[in-house]
Amino acid sequence: MEKNPTYLFVTAAALIDESGRILVQKRPEGKPMAGLWEFPGGKVEAGETPESALVRELEEELGVDVKEADIEPVAFASEPVEDQHLVLLLYMCRKWTGSIQSAESLDLQWLSIAAIEDLSMPPADGPLVQKLSKSLSNPA
């Protein structure tokens, strides 16, 4: 019988500027999957909702203030990673206050969804990019 996996919940944001470009960041050297591009975000800590974790991560990583009411769920990915099971939750956000600056001096780029589709990204991010692309081309 399989043992129960340990779940790792991670939130990510597709921050979309007034031109429709989306912010991506490069994973730093020394971290797993270094050099790959990803959406900003991070782990959901004990006692946090995914939304509150994303708000916290965006403030810590980018120095911006996002309200939970201004983030909208888009898609999720589920992927085994080492001895855990990753559940990656992608949200879309078009409204924040503050100037985006990387706290870890990460490479940041504002790109079109088409350009993001061509980036080297972690395995769980690929399906999210496709779902985000569909969501952006077919707004509800």
Results as ranks from 00 to 15, higher is better:
residue 124 A to R: 09
residue 16 I to A: 04
residue 52 S to V: 05
residue 119 L to A: 01
residue 100 I to W: 06
residue 33 M to E: 15
residue 63 G to S: 07
residue 77 A to L: 07
residue 43 K to C: 08
residue 31 K to Q: 09
residue 37 W to S: 05
residue 72 E to I: 12
residue 5 P to T: 14
residue 56 R to T: 10
residue 64 V to H: 12
residue 25 Q to E: 15
residue 134 K to Q: 11
residue 23 L to D: 09
residue 136 L to D: 00
residue 80 P to E: 13
residue 61 E to A: 13
residue 80 P to Q: 14
residue 89 L to Y: 07
residue 77 A to E: 13
residue 20 G to R: 00
residue 68 E to A: 15
residue 13 A to R: 03
residue 4 N to F: 12
residue 65 D to Q: 13
residue 26 K to N: 03
residue 36 L to F: 08
residue 124 A to H: 11
residue 13 A to Q: 05
residue 100 I to M: 11
residue 19 S to D: 13
residue 17 D to P: 02
residue 98 G to Q: 08
residue 16 I to S: 01
residue 82 E to F: 13
residue 97 T to I: 14
residue 40 P to N: 00
residue 82 E to H: 10
residue 33 M to P: 01
residue 68 E to S: 13
residue 70 D to A: 12
residue 71 I to W: 01
residue 11 T to A: 10
residue 84 Q to K: 14
residue 89 L to P: 00
residue 139 P to W: 02
residue 48 E to C: 03
residue 32 P to T: 11
residue 82 E to Y: 11
residue 108 L to Y: 05
residue 73 P to N: 01
residue 9 F to R: 05
residue 77 A to K: 02
residue 97 T to E: 14
residue 132 L to V: 04
residue 96 W to N: 06
residue 115 A to L: 06
residue 7 Y to H: 12
residue 24 V to P: 12
residue 27 R to L: 04
residue 4 N to G: 09
residue 134 K to G: 12
residue 36 L to S: 12
residue 78 S to Y: 07
residue 78 S to K: 12
residue 77 A to Y: 09
residue 38 E to F: 00
residue 35 G to D: 04
residue 133 S to T: 10
residue 110 W to C: 06
residue 75 A to S: 15
residue 137 S to L: 11
residue 17 D to R: 04
residue 22 I to Q: 05
residue 97 T to Q: 10
residue 81 V to A: 08
residue 57 E to L: 00
residue 58 L to E: 06
residue 39 F to Q: 04
residue 112 S to I: 02
residue 97 T to P: 00
residue 49 T to H: 03
residue 122 P to L: 13
residue 49 T to P: 01
residue 93 C to V: 11
residue 56 R to V: 01
residue 52 S to R: 01
residue 95 K to P: 01
residue 57 E to P: 00
residue 38 E to A: 06
residue 58 L to H: 08
residue 35 G to S: 08
residue 110 W to S: 06
residue 92 M to K: 15
residue 56 R to H: 09
residue 101 Q to W: 02
residue 103 A to E: 13
residue 33 M to F: 08
residue 71 I to E: 05
residue 97 T to N: 13
residue 53 A to F: 06
residue 59 E to Y: 15
residue 106 L to H: 08
residue 17 D to G: 04
residue 48 E to W: 03
residue 115 A to P: 01
residue 102 S to D: 04
residue 56 R to W: 06
residue 92 M to Y: 05
residue 114 A to L: 01
residue 23 L to Y: 07
residue 54 L to V: 09
residue 43 K to L: 12
residue 20 G to Y: 09
residue 134 K to W: 01
residue 5 P to G: 11
residue 45 E to I: 03
residue 133 S to A: 14
residue 89 L to D: 05
residue 39 F to E: 03
residue 56 R to E: 09
residue 50 P to S: 04
residue 77 A to V: 02
residue 136 L to G: 02
residue 95 K to Y: 03
residue 33 M to R: 15
residue 97 T to M: 07
residue 71 I to A: 02
residue 52 S to W: 00
residue 127 P to G: 03
residue 21 R to E: 11
residue 108 L to T: 12
residue 77 A to R: 09
residue 98 G to C: 04
residue 119 L to Y: 08
residue 87 V to Q: 05
residue 64 V to S: 11
residue 90 L to D: 03
residue 73 P to M: 00
residue 69 A to V: 15
residue 4 N to E: 13
residue 35 G to A: 10
residue 32 P to K: 14
residue 26 K to A: 05
residue 67 K to R: 14
residue 21 R to V: 04
residue 4 N to C: 06
residue 129 V to K: 01
residue 48 E to T: 08
